[in-house]
């Protein structure tokens, strides 16, 4: 595969991760468990949407067909979205959201500290800016994992179940394909297989501190890099794309 195509694929995956997770988090707006938390979680959503905008814009430039951030964010078919499956899972209760967020933040953090060293200057610059925010996301999702894990009996049971449920979607984060191999060879991004054990150690430590058990590694779902999604994705897109599909070609 040529470098340009691999980079385009790679950027879309990163952008889709941020866009879809930011989209899911934004659903909490006005419905959070406490006012302060409502504000805080929206900050994370805004950061992620910000990352997706930079990444889509750059992806459009790399592709060279004049596509804007919105063309890429709103006007693809489901199979063309390459976000990790974990990002499209329903918010559930707050513990489900926190479990999903912590596992993703831990991954995203380890990924972006490597991307800061990317041989691609634009990727490195986007990562350098984003990592400051991601570090904060991680800090907050750890804080909440601790509070829910080591809080009340009820919260402990709920967050443990949440981690158990989401666990099967974590393998998908580390699956690599031909694009990834080109990206690694070109020094644009890290080998996810090298990140995986570090991620596991970090998660284990956080869950242990939160008095939680690390779920067993059983069967893992995958398919996001081929655009094979969960049933949830279609519903996300039907809202996300509603305006763009109903009124094609309009400025908003």
């Amino acid at each position: 595969m040529e470098k340009k195509q691999a980079l385009f694929n790679y950027l879309l995956r990163l952008a889709d991760n941020s866009a879809i997770l930011g989209h899911k988090l934004s659903e909490w707006c006005g419905h959070g468990p406490e006012l302060e938390e409502d504000i805080a979680i929206i900050n994370t959503a805004l950061d992620l949407l910000g990352h997706s905008r930079s990444l889509y814009t750059y992806a459009g430039e790399v592709e060279g067909k004049g596509k804007t951030e919105d063309d890429l964010a709103f006007l693809r078919i489901e199979r063309e979205y390459k976000n990790a499956l974990i990002t499209e899972l329903p918010n559930g209760h707050y513990g489900d959201t926190i479990a999903r967020q912590y596992l993703f933040d831990q991954f995203n953090y380890l990924l972006f500290i490597e991307l800061e060293k990317s041989s691609d200057e634009t990727v490195a610059a986007i990562a350098a800016k984003a990592i400051k925010e991601i570090r904060y996301h991680l800090r907050r999702s750890i804080e909440w994992t601790l509070r829910l894990g080591d809080g009340t009996e009820e919260s402990h049971a709920k967050i443990q179940e949440a981690f158990d449920d989401v666990w099967a979607y974590t393998g998908d984060l580390f699956v690599q394909d031909d694009s990834d191999l080109v990206i690694i060879a070109e020094g644009i991004g890290p080998d996810l297989k090298a990140i995986q054990p570090i991620w596991r150690e970090k998660v284990k430590a956080t869950l242990a501190e939160a008095t939680l058990l690390i779920p067993e590694d059983g069967w893992m779902h995958s398919g996001s890099k081929q655009g094979r999604h969960t049933e949830h994705m279609g519903h996300i897109l039907s809202e996300l794309q509603y305006m763009q599909r109903t009124y094609p070609g309009c400025e908003w």
Binding site: P33, E34, Y94, L146, G151, T152, E154, S155
Partner: peptide, 12 residues
Amino acid sequence: NGAWVRDAATAY
């Protein structure tokens, strides 16, 4: 829906 979350943080 937020009650158990607030309680957990208080307990922690």
